[in-house]
Design a protein around this nucleic acid. Structure first.
Lengths: 194, 194
DNA sequence: AGGTATTGAATGAATGGTCATTCATTTTTG
DNA sequence: CAAAAATGAATGACCATTCATTCAATACCT
C-alpha cells in the first residue's frame, strides 16, 4: 500500500517537478523521475499508487501549501482592496519564485488525463473560494459595487491572473511578474473607461 | 504527400471533432476517427501528414474561420465600446452554437504535445491582435483611459473570456453563455469599485 | 556477545498492452 | 487498362507496471 509520506515521498515529488519542467509532461517517464530522485523505478510504487497519483500528489502538496499561505496572509489584511492586491501579489510572487513549479502547474499538468485534471480542479476550488470571499467582503464593506455578479468577477480575477502567468512562462519568464500587480489591480478596480 | 483538401479532408476533421468531444483526447485513436469518418485508417495518411497534423488542421480550419468572421463583423462597428461588446458576443455565440467544438478547442486540444500547442498558439496570435486593435482604437478615440497597458488589458479580456467558457463547459453548458456578455462588458469598462 | 531468523524496503529486468504508422493489395475512376 | 485512391492487417516502438530477488536493519535466542 502506498505510503504517501517520508523522505523519499518528498524526493519523488520534487524530482517529478524538475523532470516535468525540464522534459515536459510527455517525456517525463517514471524511470526518468526515479533516476532524478535517486530511487529505483519500483520504489515509486511503494510510495504512490501509480504515475497519476504522483502528479495529483504533486499538485496537492504544492498548491495546498500555497492556498494555506494565502488564506493566512489575507486574514491579517483589513481592507478588501488590499486583500485583492495581496492575493494577486502572492499569486505572482509564488510562481515567480519557482519557475519550474510554475511551468508544471501552469502548462504541463494541464495535459494530463481527465481523471488527474478532475482532482486538480477540486483542489483549485478552495482557491476560487478565497477569491469569492474577497469580493463578497468588498461588496459588504461598500467598497465594491453591489450590482456585480460574484462569479463573473471571480472569473475575471482568476482568468486574468492565469492568462498572465501563462504568457509570462511562454515568454521565458523574462520580465517581472510582480510588476504587473498594480496595473492589473487598477484595471480590476477602475476598468477601461475614462 | 498529404492532400489537405477535398470532401474526405473535411469529413476527417469533422469526425475528429466528434470523436474527441465524445471520447476525450486520450481515447481518440486514429482508427476511431477513421471509422467515424467512414474511411479506412490508412486513408487519413493520404490527407494528413500524421495524427498531429489532423489536430492542427482542425484548429486552423475552425479557428481561422472564426477569426475571419470576427474581423469582418468588427469592421462594420464604429465605436470601440461596441466592438468590444461584439467581440465578446461573437466569442460566446460561436462556442455556444457548437458545444462539441468548444469542448475540443477549449479542453481537449490543450492536452496535446508541445509541437501541436505551439502551432495552436500561432493561430491564436491573430485573434489576440484583433483584441489589441479594439483596445488601441478605444484609447485613440478617448473612450478608454490612455494610462492602461494594452497587453495587460488584452490579457484581462482574453483570460476572462477563456476562463468563462472553460467553466461553462465544466458545468455541462447548462446556462447561457451569451447572457454573460453585458455583465462582463460592464466589469471590463467600469471595474469593481463603486 | 555472537550468531541466526525475520521483516520489509528497495531494486531493475521483464512483461504486456496500446496505438500510430506503413505498405502490399484491392477497388474505383477516367 | 492504366493510374489514382482507398483499404486494413501487420509492424514495431514505447512505457507503465509487476514481481522475483537482494539487501539492511532489527529482534530474538543461547
Amino acid at each position: 500500500m502506498a505510503k504517501r509520506t517520508g523522505e523519499k515521498y518528498d524526493a519523488i515529488i520534487n524530482a517529478a517537478v524538475r523532470v516535468i519542467a525540464q522534459y515536459g509532461y510527455h517525456q517525463a517517464q517514471v524511470s526518468k523521475i526515479a533516476r532524478e530522485a535517486n530511487v529505483a523505478d519500483g520504489t515509486i510504487y511503494l510510495y504512490f499508487e501509480n504515475k497519476d497519483d504522483v502528479l495529483v500528489s504533486l499538485f496537492n502538496e504544492k498548491m495546498g501549501a500555497f492556498i494555506s499561505d494565502v488564506e493566512k496572509a489575507l486574514s491579517n489584511v483589513p481592507s478588501p482592496v488590499n486583500q485583492l492586491r495581496e492575493l494577486i501579489r502572492l499569486h505572482f510572487e509564488y510562481l515567480q519564485a519557482d519557475a519550474q513549479l510554475a511551468i508544471v502547474t501552469q502548462i504541463e499538468l494541464r495535459q494530463s488525463k481527465p481523471a488527474v485534471r478532475k482532482e486538480i480542479g477540486l483542489i483549485l476550488k478552495r482557491y476560487l473560494g478565497v477569491i469569492d470571499r474577497v469580493i463578497q467582503d468588498g461588496i459588504k464593506d461598500g467598497l465594491f459595487r453591489e450590482d456585480i455578479d460574484v462569479r463573473t468577477a471571480r472569473r475575471m480575477i482568476f482568468g486574468t491572473m492565469d492568462e498572465t502567468v501563462t504568457s509570462w512562462i511562454m515568454k521565458d519568464c523574462k520580465y517581472s511578474l510582480t510588476d504587473q500587480v498594480e496595473p492589473m489591480l487598477d484595471l480590476f478596480l477602475n476598468g477601461l473607461s475614462k
